[in-house]
């Protein structure tokens, strides 16, 4: 059951980890799963001096790419944007001969301060989380990756007080394990707005 079929590259971008209440526990959870390579980008490149060769090699060596980050102004923290700007080069990720990412599933696992209800047309954020992540979805599309809707922890500031962390951690672990063991129906997942409430549907043979 627990054989490694797909290797996951998990890129965490969190600039103030000593204050983290949810992202670091989630990162630790992921680290403990076999088949997951967990990279702390701010830890590895504290001066933003990203090693492009190394990052591209990591992408080549893995089958599934996951960004983990707290949502900053409806986007990734600066490090992940810098990472995209530098690593997803013409000729590597897109353009002529730029096919290194083709076919790899791509997922955002994020935490957001706003409540789930805020991320809809009627809510104060006016857009769903999937709509807000459109630039990343299009990046995945242009680089030929298989975009999966995000797994989001909403209301992250009060998640541990409200005892929602454990449930989310379990979901996160279950999803990562299923991805490693290649038990996720990617096509069924693609149509969803987010993965939060649909793990039972998309994970096979649990």
């Amino acid at each position: 059951m627990s054989e490694i079929k797909k290797r996951i590259l998990l890129l965490l971008a969190h600039p103030s980890q000593h204050r983290s209440e949810v992202n670091i526990p989630l990162f630790e959870t992921a680290k403990a799963i076999e088949g997951v390579t967990a990279v702390d980008l701010y830890g590895e490149y504290p001066t933003f001096d990203i090693d492009i060769e190394q990052e591209q090699q990591r992408l080549v060596d893995h089958d599934i790419i996951i960004f983990q980050f707290p949502l900053y102004w409806y986007s990734t923290p600066a490090m992940l944007k810098e990472w995209q700007d530098l690593v997803l080069e013409y000729g590597f990720a897109y353009g002529t001969d730029g096919e290194q990412l083709k076919g790899k599933p791509f997922l955002c696992a994020l935490t957001a301060g706003g409540k789930e209800e805020a991320y809809q047309a009627q809510g104060y954020n006016h857009f769903t989380i999937r709509q807000l992540l459109a630039p990343l979805e299009q990046t995945a599309s242009l680089t030929g990756m298989h975009y999966l809707p995000p797994l989001a922890l909403f209301g992250a500031r009060t998640a541990s007080e409200d005892d929602r962390m454990d449930a989310h951690r379990r979901k996160w672990r279950r999803l990562l394990k299923a991805l490693v063991e290649d038990r996720v129906d990617l096509d069924m997942a693609s149509g969803l707005g987010k993965l939060n409430h649909s793990l039972d549907q998309i994970i096979l043979g649990d």
């Binding site: 990203i50 492009i52 810098e82 700007d85 530098l86 690593v87 080069e89 013409y90 897109y94 353009g95 002529t96 242009l142």
Partner: peptide, 15 residues
């Protein structure tokens, strides 16, 4: 400056 080097001219037509 690799990362900020713009792609070659005309690359968008190919895309």
């Amino acid at each position: 400056e690799r990362g900020w080097t713009p792609p070659p001219k005309g690359y968008d037509e190919v895309l």
